[in-house]
């Protein structure tokens, strides 16, 4: 069970694209659970509007990018405890996911992603017939 989702590490020789937006990039926190039929991800991405969210699933790699409007441009905080920047995270998904059926919902700053498994990856119950 625990090997099905693995955090993506840069592969040797892979080119890392540097981001060019000001304000830093944050790693959003995620909860993930798995059922027989799907993986469900919940991510905290406050400040991201649905149109500024980019979710891709290619070669078992799920990438989530959320652009956050720079709402404090030119404001000096009297007191500041957190910074504001975009969100970026990627996961390598070990399970066979049906990419065409992935669905996403963004509500009150929380992203919910449903990744349905392909039929073959779902556990089959073997009927045992009484002889």
């Amino acid at each position: 069970m625990t090997r099905s989702i693995v955090q993506a590490e840069p592969r040797p020789g892979e080119v890392t694209v540097e981001r060019t937006r000001n304000g830093g990039t944050y790693v959003p926190r995620f909860d993930i659970y798995e059922t027989d039929s799907e993986l469900v991800l919940f991510g905290d991405m406050p400040g991201v509007a649905p149109e500024d969210l980019d979710i891709r699933f290619e070669n078992r790699e799920l990438t989530i990018t959320g652009k956050v409007a720079r709402r404090h441009e030119g404001i000096d905080f009297l007191y500041g405890e957190y910074g504001i920047g975009d969100f970026y995270r990627s996961f390598t998904i070990g399970e066979s996911i049906d990419g065409s059926k992935i669905s996403a919902e963004l509500k009150n700053g929380v992203l919910t992603l449903h990744l349905p498994k392909v039929e073959e990856a779902q556990p089959k119950k073997i009927e045992v017939k009484a002889g």
Partner: peptide
């Protein structure tokens, strides 16, 4: 969130 079935793989949110 309520979990009716399945297993948590990761719980980073508080």
């Amino acid at each position: 969130p309520e979990l009716e079935e399945g297993t948590w793989h990761r719980q980073e949110r508080a």
